[in-house]
């Protein structure tokens, strides 16, 4: 089926992915699948690049910090909305977490080249809208919006 035709006929497409905390082997798979879908929908490559940076960073944050998480992606004719909701330790101080270079990643995660404190800033600079809410010992929800009309 030609997905671009499907896209014209339906208002929205919806995808859901589950992530397991600590599962670095599969980190990036949701990002890769979303990228393929957006390509098939003929979304502007510049926007796809921005979405991929946001989604990968957010996905890795769940893998590196949380116990489990769910990614919801909704694409309609106006925007791409991604919501990542995790169950995990949460973030006590979001403004601190947003600072470039700040990270609470474990030494093992840092050795792999993650945990440089660049993930959330990368999301912020690539998303049109970015919201983060967290409750300590419950989890974190990250909402990312990229508008299709702002190519």
């Amino acid at each position: 089926m030609d997905l671009s035709q499907c896209f014209n006929n339906y208002f929205a497409m919806h995808f859901k992915y589950e992530i397991q905390g600590g599962d670095f082997t599969n980190a990036g798979q949701a990002s890769s699948q979303v990228k393929q879908v957006l390509k098939q929908l003929n979304v502007d490559p510049k926007l796809i690049k921005r979405v991929v940076v946001c989604l990968y960073e957010a996905e890795v944050n769940v893998v590196a910090h949380a116990w489990s998480g769910v990614i919801d992606v909704e694409v309609n004719t106006e925007r791409i909305q991604i919501v990542l909701a995790d169950k995990g330790p949460g973030i006590p101080d979001i403004s601190l977490a947003m600072q470039k270079g700040f990270s609470t990643a474990s030494p093992q995660v840092r050795e792999m080249g993650f945990g440089a404190g660049m993930g959330l800033p990368n999301i912020e600079s690539n998303a049109d809208e970015f919201r983060i809410n967290s409750k300590v010992n419950e989890g974190t929800t990250v909402e990312i919006m990229v508008y299709l009309s702002q190519a």
Binding site: F24, A27, G28, Y56, G113, F114
Partner: peptide, 13 residues
């Protein structure tokens, strides 16, 4: 770096 996550990024980018 020489682990699998390098390829995830190489592919996405």
């Amino acid at each position: 770096q020489s682990h699998k996550n390098v390829m995830a990024i190489a592919s996405l980018k």
